[in-house]
Structures are given as structure tokens and as C-alpha cells.
Write a protein that binds this DNA or RNA. Structure first.
Lengths: 358, 358
DNA sequence: ATGAAAGCGCTAACAC
DNA sequence: GTGTTAGCGCTTTCAT
């Protein structure tokens, strides 16, 4: 049909108004779906709009209304399937409420996170959902709050920032997972986590600025101590942020004669890399070493043996945090909520008695 | 510090101008980084901006410039790690060029895809990258083109739409994968793909409206025929869009005594589900049945045996399609490009001779 | 029920 | 170099 050159100037309410022989205001009323218009005029305007192929300019609309219909989301790493699911939960919930989502990746880097927040605020998003990469520097998050836009935190709580927050029961989950290991007889258990840190060695909790990481370590250590294990922190390893780092940590961990007999991994990306290294070294799971990981990633159920996991309802986390945010966007004033979503442990075949006992 | 109530009205160039005792235009010049200003005035304005905590309103900026700095992306399913990687490639490339990304999920539904496109156009994105879910209805994509905004296609070509398109060598990849199977002696090979279709049975290529799906089937059939296999289409199955569908297809496929001795899966989501069903039925890979899948998903390297895959450079696809789009956004006029990125096959342990020969 | 006009925050001509 | 002015496309009083 219309094979003419691309439309240079898009058609505006003024164009439609002219075509329909009404005022700009009237056309805008029917096009924008507000105010009152007679049925006849409505019909005329709609017909004109159709004839001209009118598309509203959401930008202009946002500018006058102050709302963009966009929710900004900043996550640590979209390639981590935990976040994929959470984002899916966010998107579905937002879309159902008529909102769009702008997604930004922080790569767990505080500077990238700040930049992303700045941009999103500039775009006048109606609200933000952030997975804060650390709790020391929250000035940019404070700014959001100050700018009057709602903010909700996903997966990680910030002690200094009293806003709607949804996390899982990290401490408890870590304790339960660890207990499975100690109950099976393990005394030398490694905990490997992804917090960005120059060294892999763990000193004390003061080093850790990410709530979920911290709480999991706390839970792990507590469960170990409950089982009478002394200095359980000797096998805590930080900095498994990339496959190569994880590989280095695992290699070192498995090289000593005093090596751990079980491993608890803080996410599935770490676990899969550790699993590969374990395999390559000719070790068997769980005969030679037991393994539990956070997150029920797809691969954990197809390995031989399948992996015991802490199942985190990622989609649900995304859904809940979005609901909280939407409620704020709608202007409900009430104290910030702190939702803790329970996890469950799916026992599969990757835990067995420690090899030393054989 | 400033613990006052959230800023109601955000500070504007006018506010900064007043504070710095210069005109709005001058303030705008330094704040917007264009035009020329004396160093002294620049300093004054910057100081005023800082004091007032000025944040540019990107919306207003976009409205006057006509550019939003946003690239709209519509993919089939973000949970599919193939798309995750592609999106990561898109994001990284876009961000490096100073663009943001709005991500929308079509769920491979044409209506959702149309809605997403409409919204993104409304937001005046500077360009769109779409993974078209089918090639019959491309009116909405034509509209993009007509609206003057660049459009680039990812992973799937559209015969009717002559725009920048980046895909992998689907036909050839399917042929090579199939040949591995035929060379190993297989004569009864199933091809299972995810195109949305009411029945699972395949009749002819005319049913298929998605280029990548179609080309892969073509390649599969061609390679089978080259190997002298008659009616290879008898084992082509469509509609593996959800785990349940895949499960049903696999169950049926494996229930007959004439069951296939090898399977080629069109994506890793299908393959993992098939792998699970195979396991549950007590069949072994590759002794009882061989398996190859498109996409080097993480799980394919940790199963026993690991899975032979068609490695698609998803990140690269995203990167390349974004580069093409950015070039168009910059206004370069030249004929649409059709880039075909080569794939490679990673041979692992999931292919063996057909069990019937034993 | 409809219209006229102002204004959202910014950029872009065009003067001076 | 700096200021003045006029929009961008829409919503929103305020009249009529």
C-alpha cells in the first residue's frame, strides 16, 4: 500500500484535530482517554486518528503527566539464571499492571550500578528495583528516595536504607543446607561465595558488605559451630565472581591433603564450575566429595548424580518486590515492608558420608 | 545531611540559571554540554548545579532532540539462555555507545510482540532489535520501518522485510549436525523443534513461518536424504514450546518399537527435557539413543556423557546486530545487510552407533 | 461538551 | 560569549 518515504514528522494530536475538525484539546481528550466528549466527536476523532495512523508520543505524555509507565530494574548479572527468573517475575507483574521495564546490568560493580541508577532517574522511571551490589555506598539509592521515586530492594537488604525489601531467608537456608552436611558426618566443609574481593581468604564478617552473602556465611558458620566444628571459617572462600576465579579457588581447595569433604556453593554459577573441576580431577560426587548449591538451576537435575540444592523462588521474589513497588507508585503511604520469602531444600544425590570415614 | 522531605519538583535548568545568575540558555549550554561558554560562567553554572543537585530530565531532552538514547529489544524468551547471551551482547554494545536498552519479552506470541513494538515506538526508541516470532504477520515491523526508525532482525530472517538481519547458518548447521548422526550409522533420526503449532506432526515446510526453524528442518531433511534415508520427515516434531509439550512429544517418540535411534533438538530447553525423559525411561545416552542439540548451554557439559552441541555465538549475534543498528541510527544510508554468523559443532559424548546394530 | 491558552524541561535558531 | 524566543507533543486549567 503506502510505499512512500518514511514519515519524517510523526502525526500529532494537532494533526488529528485538524483532520477531525475539532480543537486540539478535544482530540487530545479522546486520544488520551480522559475528560468527556460526545459520542459523535469521539467517533470523528477516532476515525481521523486511524486514517492518519496516529501513534501517541509517550515521551510528551510522560513529560506532562510526570509518569513514564516505566519501572527501572538494576540487577547484578542477568546471565545468572536466578536473576533471569526474578526479572521474568518482575516483567510479568509490571506488564500486567500496565508498566514497562527497563533493564540494566550492574555486573555487581558499584560504579556501573550508580551510572545505571542515574540514567534511569533521568528517564523519569516511575520506580526502581535494585539488587544493591554492596551496602557501604548507598548514596545513589538515597538519592532515588530523595527524588521522590519509590525504590524497592531485591535479594539483598540494606541496614541503612529503610525501604521495601524482599529477600529469601538466607541465614536460615544456609544453616539448613549446612546441617544436612554436618548430619551426614562432614566436619570439613567449604563455603564458596561470589562477593567481589581481592583475596580469596576470609577473615571476618566485617569484610562483607552484601547482606545476603553475609547472612549466608553467618548461617553456615553457626550451623558448623552447632555441630561442634572448630574454626569453620578456615574453609570459607570469597571472590568466586568469575569462572576463572572459581576454578582457582577450587583447585587450591582440593589440592591439600586436608581438603574439605563437602562444599556449599552460594550460587549455581559457582557450583557448576566447581563440579567441572571436581570431575576433571577424577573425584566423584558424592563418594569423594559432597556438594550443595544455592539455586535450583536447570543443570543441577541432569548431572549424575543430580545436585542437592537450596531452592530459591526467584520468580516469586520478582513478583513480590514488584507488587510492593507498584503499591508505592500508586501513592500508598505506609511503613516500608521487609518480606522474607522462605526457601526449601531439594535433596538429590550429591550428599554422602565423608570419604575419610571409609 | 539533607533529611528533608522528598523533592516535589525537580530542579531544572531555569533554577540553575537563576542560581548562577545567567540566562537559561547559557545554563543549558553547559549542562547539556553543547555550544560555547566562558570558563568562568561554566564554573558558576556547574557550582550552582551541584549546589541544587540538578539532574537532567532525559525525557524533555529526548523530546526536543527527537532521540531517546534507548534501543528497544524484543526477544522470544529471555529465560532461554541463548537469548540471555544475545541480550548481554546487545546491552554491552549499546551501553558502550552510550545507549540504554529496554527489554521486552514476546513469549514467542505474535500479539505480545506487536504490543511490545507499539509501546517501544511510543517511547520513541532510537531503534529496535526484534526476534520476529513469525513471518506471516509483519505489519507491525513494516510500521517501524515506516515510522523512520531503524529496525534490525536477530536470529530470524524475514523474506518480506529487507532490513539488517543477523542469523546463524541454520541450514548448514543442521546439515552438519545431522551428518554426524548419519555418518555414525543412524537411519531413524528425530528432529524436534519449538515452533508454535497445534499438532506435533509435521506435514510440509509450508506450515513453518519462522525462518530459522524452517531452514534447520530443511538442512536436517537434506542431510538425511543425502544419506539415502527415505521419508526422514516422519520423525520431525513441532510444538515443543513448553516442557510439558516436549515431554509429551518425547514420550510418544520413544514409545514405539520403531523409535528413532538419535535425536536432534532445536534448542537446549527442548534437549534438557528430552534428556530427562530419556533418563527416566532408563535409556542410556549414547548406547540406547544419541542426542545432539543446538546451543552450548551450560548443562550440556556436565551431564554424563556430556552432550554434543551446535555452538551458536549468541553474544556475538547480539553484538553484531547492535552494531548494524547503531550504524543506521547514526544515519548511514546504505543497503540492508544480511549477516550470517558461522556456528561450530562441539563434539562430546552423546553420539554413538545406533543400538539396533548391536 | 468543547475550545483557547498555558506550561512541562529542554534544545535550537537567531540576535546582540 | 550570552541572551531571547520559539517550539517539541502532550495534558490541564479555565473559560465559554
Amino acid at each position: 500500500m503506502n510505499n512512500s518515504t518514511p514519515t519524517i514528522r510523526s502525526v500529532t494530536v494537532a494533526d488529528v484535530a485538524r483532520e477531525a475538525r475539532v480543537s486540539k484539546a478535544t482530540a487530545a481528550r479522546v486520544l488520551g482517554g480522559y475528560g468527556v466528549v460526545s459520542d459523535k466527536v469521539r467517533g470523528d476523532v477516532l476515525a481521523a486518528a486511524k486514517a492518519l495512523d496516529y501513534r501517541p508520543n509517550e515521551l510528551a505524555r510522560s513529560m506532562t503527566t510526570g509518569k513514564s509507565g516505566i519501572i527501572g530494574v538494576v540487577v547484578g548479572d542477568i546471565e545468572n539464571s536466578f536473576f533471569s527468573f526474578a526479572v521474568r517475575g518482575i516483567s510479568d507483574t509490571a506488564r500486567a499492571a500496565g508498566f514497562n521495564v527497563i533493564l540494566a546490568n550492574s555486573g555487581e560493580q558499584i560504579e556501573a550500578e550508580k551510572a545505571a541508577v542515574r540514567v534511569l532517574i533521568g528517564k523519569r522511571v516511575d520506580g526502581l528495583i535494585v539488587t544493591p551490589s554492596e551496602s557501604r555506598d548507598v548514596s545513589h539509592l538515597r538519592d532515588i528516595h530523595r527524588s521522590g521515586r519509590p525504590l524497592a530492594l531485591l535479594d539483598r537488604a540494606l541496614p541503612d536504607l529503610d525501604v521495601d525489601t524482599v529477600t529469601v531467608d538466607d541465614r536460615d537456608a544456609a544453616m539448613r543446607a549446612t546441617r544436612i552436611l554436618t548430619d551426614t558426618g562432614h566436619r570439613d566443609i567449604a563455603y564458596v561465595t561470589a562477593v567481589d574481593f581481592s583475596e580469596h581468604e576470609y577473615r571476618d564478617l566485617e569484610q562483607i558488605y552484601t547482606s545476603s552473602v553475609r547472612e549466608r556465611i553467618e548461617g553456615f558458620l553457626a550451623a558448623c559451630r552447632d555441630a561442634g566444628i572448630v574454626t569453620p571459617e578456615r574453609f570459607v572462600r570469597l571472590g568466586a565472581t568469575k569462572p576463572e576465579e572459581t576454578r582457582a579457588i577450587t583447585d587450591k581447595l582440593l589440592s591439600t591433603p586436608e581438603r574439605p569433604t563437602a562444599i556449599l556453593a552460594s550460587d549455581s554459577l559457582i557450583a557448576i564450575e566447581m563440579f567441572k573441576v571436581i570431575r576433571e580431577r577424577g573425584l566423584r560426587v558424592p563418594e569423594d566429595i559432597s556438594l550443595i548449591t544455592f539455586h535450583d538451576a536447570d543443570w543441577t537435575s541432569v548431572t549424575s548424580p543430580p545436585i542437592t540444592v537450596v531452592d530459591q523462588p526467584a520468580y516469586m521474589l520478582g513478583k513480590v518486590v514488584t507488587e510492593l513497588l507498584l503499591r508505592r507508585i500508586e501513592g500508598k503511604v505506609r511503613p516500608p515492608e521487609r518480606v522474607i520469602v522462605p526457601t526449601s531444600i531439594i535433596q538429590r544425590g550429591s550428599v554422602g558420608p565423608p570419604f575419610r570415614e571409609k
